[in-house]
């Protein structure tokens, strides 16, 4: 803290100033502007396919009160959570190993690239044919979507560790296990957490895509249903809810990331967290 002198007495101004130091008020302002533009455009271009902002907001509130939404959320999130956890549980260790033992890289590099660029939608028919329409194929697709981020970031995390830290540990007699525990994993942690956050984003994408293209259940199922009813406000409301969930999850991931790696300066934290 650089402020000198006695602490200011009046508390509300301090609280407001602290709030202004975060990104939240500015993001809210952006939202407000977008909402106003949306409202204006939708009112002047009346169309059954384009609800106004207020209609969407109202539909969102209504939808939140309905069991149908929560059943859909429950279904969707099963695939999301399981697929994401599998991706992290397999992807992070795989990435760490790839980073440490670059000899393995030869065997795997091209497949990672394929996984990174392949339009996943293309393998959906394949999955359905082999695993069926059940939870398993949705989980697999979510995992496939997100695992690449976990692998590549964990690998990069190991690669960017200063080699002299490993040498230093060896001069103090560290075993390979100690080097992993005391140097490699903490050193890679910022990148691992970035990978987890990006994997979460891709998992949400995967969750919705699989429901839209393959198994119309959950959120994707709701979107398809409302589309067939031309119920645009409800359709938009589902999108809003999915987006909100994604934002919440990613904010939580970012918060955990910052808590776990306070020494790292690489992540984009709000200015005032020092």
């Amino acid at each position: 803290m650089t402020t000198a002198g006695p602490a200011p007495r009046s508390r509300p101004p301090g609280r407001i100033r602290r709030l202004l130091g975060t990104d939240l008020p500015y993001q809210m302002l952006t939202l407000l502007v977008v909402a106003a533009l949306w409202e204006g455009y939708a009112r002047t271009h009346e169309s059954i396919l384009l609800p106004t902002f207020t209609e969407t907001a109202a539909a969102t509130v209504t939808l939140l009160g309905e069991g149908e939404l929560w059943r859909a959320a429950w279904l969707s999130n099963q695939a999301l959570v399981l697929g994401f956890l599998i991706a992290v549980a397999l992807g992070v260790p795989a990435g760490l190993l790839l980073g440490r033992f670059s000899a393995i890289e030869r065997y795997t590099d091209v497949y990672l690239s394929i996984l990174l660029v392949t339009p996943m939608a293309g393998i959906i028919p394949l999955l359905v044919m082999s695993v069926g329409f059940g939870l398993a194929s949705r989980v697999i697709l979510v995992a496939l979507f997100s695992v690449v981020m976990a692998v590549t970031n964990a690998r990069a995390g190991i690669r960017q560790i200063d080699a002299s830290l490993i040498e230093m540990s060896r001069t103090f007699g560290a075993s390979e296990a100690q080097i992993w525990r005391r140097v490699l994993i903490p050193g890679a942690m910022p990148a691992i957490m970035t990978g987890v956050r990006l994997a979460l984003g891709r998992a949400v994408t995967g969750m919705v895509i699989v429901e839209l293209l393959m198994v119309s259940v959950g959120y994707g199922g709701l979107i398809l249903t409302y589309r067939s009813h031309f119920d645009a406000p409800a359709l938009y409301a589902v999108v809003v809810i999915v987006l909100s969930e994604a934002v919440l999850l990613i904010s939580a991931a970012r918060w955990i990331e910052r808590k776990m790696t306070p020494w790292a300066t690489s992540h984009h934290s709000p200015r005032s967290t020092a």
Binding site: D162, M168, T171, V183, G187, T261, A264
Partner: peptide
């Protein structure tokens, strides 16, 4: 050993 680039654990 003492290293030229210090080799301290940043965390």
């Amino acid at each position: 050993m003492v290293f030229q680039n210090f080799a301290l654990l940043p965390w």
